[in-house]
Design a protein around this nucleic acid. Structure first.
Length: 901
RNA sequence: GGACCCGUGGCUCAGCGGUUAGAGCACUCGGUUCACAUCCGAGGGGUCGCUGGUUCGAAUCCAGCCGGGUCCACCA
């Protein structure tokens, strides 16, 4: 990357030699160096380039990272960003944080309470004393404290974010963009102001949207209350009895409703009853929303305090009475209950009903109750004037974009959930009655009630354009925090100006986040991106699963949130990042466990030590390196083992590249570990040790090690950047690479080189033979230092070149052909391990092997004798036939041995 | 109430139509401390939730049921 001004790598990293990898010794040095060197900033635009662009799912500014963030940011997103960057794509991963509206306000209010201040004029405030302007000044003061804090945590995770482009949703320029967006949406008629029933939080003193309402199961008293007929009725007319959990709202009833087809009530619809206590006459109406099965089949209709009832009320033109105010106290409209809080009012109402003989009975009921997701206060539905966004027209093209494949959701089944929600989308209440947030660019004229919305980039209005009055009052509300984050993919790049960044980086490539904010954020970004840009904001949505504890989603309210910060400090970011991703399928939830973290730590350490071994060999023979490290070594001095690990390395390059292309990050991590630990460390490094090398091949081992390490470090870097970079810098100090990369961050992702599939297969057979010999030794309970004779017979010719390797790894003397003792079979190879065994035991083992072999042979025979032989695909049949031959040979061999025994 | 996901060895998870179903942890046994206060080697352990169906062939596809989870929803 041409223009980057990288400095020399930190000495502390170059010199770090710990026997066990101590991440804390290198992490901060490396991150600061990467950042300062500009590695995370895309270089200048090149013609024909295909940039990789991702937006960080902006964390709440006052929040702490939790494991879900560690999984998303560190596990998947940084992995993708680093991988694409290494593939040569100019990569922009844009960081930022969300002002988090009500959450941040609550956090800071608590801080201020400690200092003895708070919001003025709100009774719910911890303390009094601050004007709105003073309070906002305090908010900004606290932002200076929280912003570096959350950004520091992102850096700890190793996220390769472009900090030169960091944004905060409340930055002045972002406020301007939000204001322009609001004005445009208003002029287009997408935003409107209306009296509707909304969720109201008595604690937070604000409205909130359906998405922010949670439901919990609770047991309450269900009271059956009789509403006397308002006029004399014929004998035998049933009593009107409603069942309610909220008797205090009876005073705001403006109808009672039954199902229009309910035979019990059919003829009575239109008659009137008396609302208990308030003695008001209301009609019995018929509405389809009524459930005939529930209670008595009669519903009390309270449009002012229940969402269903509000809708019924609208259909029937019912009056809306508000009996509860925004602080939860009964209003004058509540008559005798006026002034009581809602809980006291409930008890009082029950007492009055009892006195009047209208309380029929009470019984416990278990039902769902809505609560505010931020504070868990029980929802108080109220009718209020709010700003709403009309969603259906915006949803349409966003649905279409996914349907026609312009936007792809991974895993695919999440698309169904997306469609389901988008097709039934409801209007979005966007105003909030708090102070911290984007203000609404709307003024109301005190004199003529005109609504004044200024032009884009116009100053705040000072006079009413209609009546010239200067008595203008700005809407005191602020916008839902998701209103600004919905614009994130284009607002951060400069919209509405046609900036170079916007032209170059919009639309983005991938949006990675947890599936739990699909609606909150992803869907809204799609809608606003299409609306404002005329184009989708990203091509792929990758949704990861939840990190659970005891099978449950982590959430603050459950108190089961685990912090990754301590884990990073203790085990290193690499270990954590790797542990979270390893072995987890796309989109699957995963239970966090210490065991995973431990495995991650050990894997990182394993790689570190494999690297240390390689470096030590290189230091011992510095002249061995003749060309660039990353050019595959050749030459007659390469051993079979060298050529094998080289071929396996290329195979691993192929596999891992494919897995990443398919978003199979869990499999990528597992395959990486398999290769590094088993093939590289347990087999190759053992064979690369000088004491095991044939004379004259020591340099070849060094060259091979250096090359394989270089490949592996590149392959592993996207997931475990710190340990790989530490090793790469030290490795590259010994010689150059063909890409001359100053850092793995900006090095080239390997392209697979030539493989020798035949060699891989033959070496694989040798490994199987080695394992069988070890097994026989173990069975025989031999002292490990004892040399044994091993004779390889049958079809052992392919193993000739590996005789030394087999001998070296099993402590055996290997001969071909002949040999004493009964064989054990590995594919078509007869392995005779000459161990002192009694004939009887030996015979028993042969008999068991034969029995097993016969079972397998029979299985294959039956299969090939069935319809399989005519209906299965040819290659599958061919494989089975080959197996048949192998198994027949095995049986024959065992039989002849048994005859001799 | 609806939708979706999951149910595979003691634990955490892969595999999602074709060899004797894999990995890590845990467990048993045997070594080692010469890259790895560790590591190496070997082993035991699974009727792939249940019941049907489709198929030459099902852990894998379909249906129903049971259990767990998540989301959506106006049952008072």
């Amino acid at each position: 990357m041409a223009t980057q001004t990288h400095t020399k790598p930190p000495q502390a990293v170059l010199q770090y030699r710990g026997k066990n990898f101590d991440a804390s010794a290198v992490e901060t040095f490396l991150y600061d160096w990467w950042d300062a060197s500009g590695f995370f900033t895309p270089g200048p635009e090149r013609p024909g380039e295909k940039p990789f662009v991702m937006m960080l799912p902006l964390p709440n500014v006052t929040g702490d990272l939790h494991l879900g963030h560690a999984l998303g940011f560190g596990g998947y997103e940084d992995l993708m960003a680093r991988w694409h960057r290494m593939r040569g794509e100019p990569t922009l991963w844009l960081p930022g944080s969300d002002h988090a509206g009500i959450i941040a306000q609550i956090v800071v209010e608590k801080e201020l309470a400690k200092e003895g201040a708070g919001r003025k004029g709100k009774d719910s405030s911890p303390t009094l004393g601050l004007s709105r302007a003073e309070f906002l000044a305090e908010m900004w003061r606290w932002m200076d404290h929280y912003k570096p804090r959350i950004y520091k945590q992102l850096r700890m995770l190793g996220c390769s974010l472009d900090w030169t482009r960091v944004h905060f949703t409340m930055d002045p320029d972002m406020q301007r963009r939000v204001r322009i967006h609001f004005i445009r949406m208003y002029r287009k008629g997408h935003l409107y102001r209306a009296d509707r029933i909304v969720h109201w939080c008595l604690t937070c003193q604000t409205t909130y949207s359906d998405l922010e309402a949670l439901h919990v199961v609770r047991t309450d008293q269900l009271s059956y209350v009789r509403y006397p007929w308002a006029q004399p009725m014929p004998a035998g007319t049933p009593d009107v009895v409603v069942a309610t959990t909220r008797p205090e709202t009876i005073v705001a009833d403006t109808a009672v409703a039954v199902h229009p087809d309910d035979p019990r009530w059919k003829g009575l619809i239109g008659r009137e009853v008396l609302v208990p206590v308030s003695e008001r006459k209301v009609k019995l109406i018929g509405d389809l929303a009524v459930d005939r099965e529930f209670g008595t089949g009669v519903l009390k209709v309270t449009p002012g305090h229940d969402a269903t009832d509000f809708e019924i009320g609208q259909r029937h033109g019912l009056q809306v009475l508000s009996a509860i105010d925004t602080r939860g106290f009964m209003t004058p409209a509540a008559g005798p209950l006026a002034g009581l809080d809602r809980d006291t009012a409930r008890t009082a109402m029950i007492e009055r009903l009892k006195e009047k003989g209208l309380l029929v009975r009470q019984e416990p009921i278990t039902h769902n109750v809505g609560i505010h997701d931020r504070c868990e206060t029980v929802d108080e539905p109220l009718v209020m004037k709010q700003w709403w966004m009309k969603m259906a027209p915006l949803a349409k093209p966003a649905i279409e974009a996914v349907r026609r494949g312009a936007v792809r959701i991974v895993p695919k089944y999440q698309e169904k959930i997306y469609f389901e929600w988008m097709e039934n989308i409801r209007d979005w209440p966007v105003s909030r009655q708090i102070w911290w947030g984007h203000s609404i660019p709307v003024w109301y004229c005190t004199d003529c009630n005109e609504i004044v919305v200024p032009d884009e980039d116009a100053p705040d209005p000072t006079a009413c354009p209609k009546c010239r009055s200067t008595e203008l009052r700005q809407d005191p509300d602020v916008l839902d925090t998701w209103f600004s984050s919905a614009l994130w993919p284009h607002s951060t790049l400069g919209w509405p100006e046609q900036t170079p960044d916007l032209a170059r980086f919009y639309p983005g490539s991938v949006l990675e986040t947890g599936y739990d904010i699909l609606f909150f954020w992803v869907a809204r970004m799609l809608m606003m991106g299409i609306e404002n840009m005329g184009d989708i904001p990203f091509q792929t949505v990758y949704l990861h699963g939840l990190v659970t504890t005891e099978r449950r989603k982590m959430s603050k309210s459950k108190g089961n949130v685990v912090s990754p910060v301590g884990m990073i400090e203790e085990h290193g970011a690499d270990a954590l990042r790797y542990a979270l991703v390893n072995g987890i399928a796309a989109g699957a939830d995963s239970e966090f466990s210490e065991g995973k973290l431990e495995n991650g730590r050990r894997f990182v350490n394993k790689l570190w030590n494999a690297g240390r071994f390689g470096l030590a060999q290189l230091e011992a023979r510095p002249s061995a390196l003749t060309g660039p490290i990353d050019v595959a070594p050749t030459g007659p001095d390469l051993t079979e083992a060298d050529r094998w690990i080289l071929s396996r390395t290329e195979a691993t390059v192929e596999d891992l590249t494919r897995l990443l292309e398919q978003y199979q990050f869990g499999e990528y991590a597992t395959a990486l570990q398999q290769f590094v630990w088993t093939e590289l460390a347990d087999f190759y490094i053992e064979l690369a040790k000088p004491q095991r090398r044939p004379a004259g091949s020591l340099d070849a081992a060094v060259r091979t090690l250096a090359y394989v390490l270089d490949r592996v470090l590149r392959l592993a870097h996207p997931s475990i950047p710190f340990v790989t970079e530490t090793l790469a810098l030290q490795l590259w100090a010994h010689g150059r690479t063909s890409d001359d990369a100053p850092s793995l961050v900006v090095s080239a992702w390997p392209k697979p080189g030539a493989r020798d599939a035949g060699l891989e297969d033959r070496f694989g057979l040798a490994i199987e033979v080695i394992r069988r010999i070890r097994e026989r030794r173990q069975e025989a309970d031999l002292d490990p230092r004892t040399k044994v004779q091993v004779a390889l017979g049958g079809d052992a010719a392919p193993l000739q070149p590996f005789a030394e390797i087999i001998a070296s790894l099993t402590g055996a003397e290997v001969r071909f052909g002949g040999g004493e003792g009964a064989p054990t079979l590995v594919r078509a190879v007869e392995v005779r391990v000459d161990v002192p065994r009694e004939a009887a035991t030996d015979r028993a083992r042969l008999e068991k092997e034969l029995a097993d072999a016969l079972v397998l042979l029979e299985k294959t025979r039956v299969l090939l004798g069935s319809e399989f032989a005519t209906k299965a695909p040819a290659p599958v049949i061919a494989r089975e036939r080959a197996k048949l031959a192998e198994r027949e040979a095995a049986v024959a061999s065992l039989r002849s041995e048994l005859a001799k025994a």
